[in-house]
Amino acid sequence: PLTGRPYQWHRMRLVFQRGKAFYLEFTVRLFWALLVRRADLITANDLDTLLPCYLVSRLKGIPLLYDSHEYFTEVPELVHRPRTRAMWLWLERRLFPRLRWVITVNDSLARAYTARYGGPVEVIRNLPLRQAPPPTGERPAMLLYQGALNLGRGIELMIDAMAFLPAYRLEIAGRGDVEEALRQRAQAMPNVHFHGFVPPEALRDLTCQARLGFSLEEDLGANYRFASPNKVYDYIQAHTPVLVSDLPEMAALVRAHGVGDILPADARTPQELAQRVRALVEEPARYRAAVEACQEAAQQLNWEQERSRLLTLYERVFSEQ
């Protein structure tokens, strides 16, 4: 359950849990749920909610805001499934040019959508709430991955690198499609631990204990190439330096704020990754500088600083009604 939320929420219990039947049931159920509820504005969160939100917004004559958190038609799960991807592309091509209000999470995605469909796409970053400073003091020799355990997240590389980092342990927090394969891969690795799903409050505590946070997405298509993973901002809020892939948005963030290191595309081997970890964590002056950079960046990269952009956009939407 979602606890402690300052808004109402409703979780739909679906008969089907995956595949085309899941999306069909979800789309129909969401359409009727929106149709019978009163609203002044509808926000469609990613392409898989857009059709019912668009239809209801037209039927009721209320504005629709499309919030694209990722490049949905370019996710790795679709890139190698041409028929399924073609279906989502058809839907996107039919609806996107008709949308008046579109936001996404970074400049790379905004440019990609504008190049494909024209029209303005505004950037509102999906930043976390500002958190109280974490406890001070030396942290244990713990490396952290938090997030979905899905294809192309670089988790296999992290696990393999632990053979060259015997003094460290890798904590993996999350669930996903490749979880069982990852557990099998790590069976002989005593310094790799899986936590499964971790509630947000407990995840924050875990993140504050880590010496380093990983975000090593592979370049498996435009979605990962232009990704701005939430976990990177969560690491920064916890004053935990990061090691990220050399992909445009993540690398630009690290270079701009100095919050960690970047793993080059030609260095994605277990030995090279282990060397990068030690070079950052075991060099006191360099590590201290990265922690201090996280402390400074955390004051800027938070929702309290970003939310005014969304509120201003809402004002513009309603002023045109």
Rank of each mutant, 00 (worst) to 15 (best):
D40P: 04
A181G: 13
W88V: 06
P1R: 13
A132Q: 15
E92N: 03
I155T: 05
H239L: 07
E171C: 11
K60Q: 12
N191M: 06
A210H: 08
F26Q: 10
P52W: 07
E249R: 02
P135Q: 12
F214A: 01
L78Q: 12
L35M: 10
V56K: 01
Q17T: 13
L216N: 04
L2C: 12
H195R: 15
R29A: 14
P6C: 02
L206W: 08
Q321Y: 00
R93V: 10
L149W: 06
R204M: 00
L212I: 01
H239W: 15
T207C: 07
Y287L: 09
R309Y: 13
I155F: 10
T3N: 11
I236K: 02
G19E: 01
L310R: 05
E171T: 11
T73V: 14
G4E: 07
E171I: 13
D205C: 06
A238N: 03
A33M: 08
L143C: 05
L14K: 08
N302M: 04
H69T: 08
E315P: 01
Y117P: 13
A290V: 02
F197K: 00
A181Y: 03
Q237A: 03
F318P: 02
V291N: 07
T104P: 09
S68K: 08
R111A: 11
A285T: 12
P229L: 01
S68P: 12
C53Y: 07
Y145I: 03
T84A: 09
